[in-house]
């Protein structure tokens, strides 16, 4: 009795296998040819059937193997598709000057910035004299970058800072614009406020206001740590700052010095842990040098 049951079971298993493999329908083989990543060498007429059967079995067997590899494939695809923010090799000040030029306020050419300023006039004369001797032609205007065009348009439209920030981030994530490295935050976003603050500061200078000195007043708040080291000769104060989410090197420079252009001071003091200005991460403890 038990033998009959085992035999029937074995028969059923074989039948199932036969139905699944179905070597005579020809469809799996055709499907295989359609899906085959590389053309398979043309089978010789004599062993065509054997070959096709073998291929079919192999492909069918491969199906369950493909499934576990799928997540890996998706991961690979993601690293290509996932938007990464491109870093512009133009500095923040260059980007700022370009935006101001686009707004009709050229800080690079003092003649246009303020015609009445005798110092600007004199500077223009000196520059043309130097260029004549060096044999350099007048500096040509460089084409504005995509970021500059975007910010210029947004500022012209009178958009809010938050709206500009959202637009810049969207464009940066889509890979449409490249941004200066100091604007990249610890969580991989673009800190547009750094650029906007820089634009305002430069516009003030262009309008004839004196450049404010670096603020050295004590800065408090989350992540700020002050250590006073007393030696026989002097008392030195060291400041540290722990990076939190959303901080960029530019915003930290604004926080401590009142000017994003001081980012280099922080970057230089922390080269041991920062490979480049856009590589800041939450939790990093940065030394903040005192403004000299």
């Amino acid at each position: 009795m038990i033998r009959i049951v085992v035999a029937l079971f074995a028969f059923a298993v074989l039948l199932c296998a036969w139905i699944i493999y179905d070597p005579f329908s020809g469809q799996p083989a055709e499907r295989l040819e359609a899906e085959a990543p590389a053309p398979i060498a043309a089978p010789t007429p004599t062993d065509e059937f054997v070959d096709r059967l073998g291929e079919a079995i192999e492909v069918t067997r491969n199906v369950p193997e493909v499934a576990p590899t799928q997540p890996v494939m998706r991961e690979i695809t993601r690293t290509f598709v996932e938007p990464t923010i491109r870093v512009d090799d133009r500095t923040l000040s260059e980007t700022t000057a370009g935006v101001l030029a686009g707004l009709g306020l050229d800080v690079r050419n003092p003649a246009q910035a303020s015609v009445d300023d005798p110092m600007a006039q004199m500077t223009v004369g000196v520059l043309s004299g130097i260029r004549a001797v060096i044999g350099e032609t007048e500096a040509t205007l460089t084409e504005p970058t995509a970021l500059q065009v975007l910010v210029i348009q947004a500022l012209r439209d009178g958009q809010t800072d938050a709206a500009i920030d959202a637009a810049v981030n969207e464009a940066a994530l889509a890979g449409d614009v490249a941004v200066p490295d100091v604007m990249i935050t610890s969580d991989g976003r673009v800190d547009t406020s750094v650029l906007l603050a820089s634009i305002i500061a430069e516009a003030r200078v262009a309008a004839g206001e004196a450049r404010p000195p670096a603020s050295s007043e004590s800065v408090g708040g989350d992540g700020v740590e002050v250590r006073v080291v007393q030696t026989v000769e002097e008392t030195q104060q060291y400041r540290f700052y722990t990076v939190s989410a959303g901080d960029s090197l530019g915003s930290i420079a604004i926080k401590f010095y009142g000017d994003a252009s001081y980012y280099n001071v922080i970057f230089d003091a922390n080269r041991a842990i920062l490979s480049s200005p856009d590589r800041i991460r939450s939790g990093q403890r940065l030394v903040i040098p005192n403004a000299s």
């Binding site: 690079r108 003092p110 110092m119 600007a120 500077t123 000196v126 520059l127 130097i130 260029r131 060096i134 350099e136 200078v205 004196a210 450049r211």
Partner: peptide, 11 residues
């Protein structure tokens, strides 16, 4: 005191 002296330095 010249706010534009940076341009001369660059030149």
């Amino acid at each position: 005191g010249n706010p534009y002296r940076g341009q001369i330095f660059e030149a």
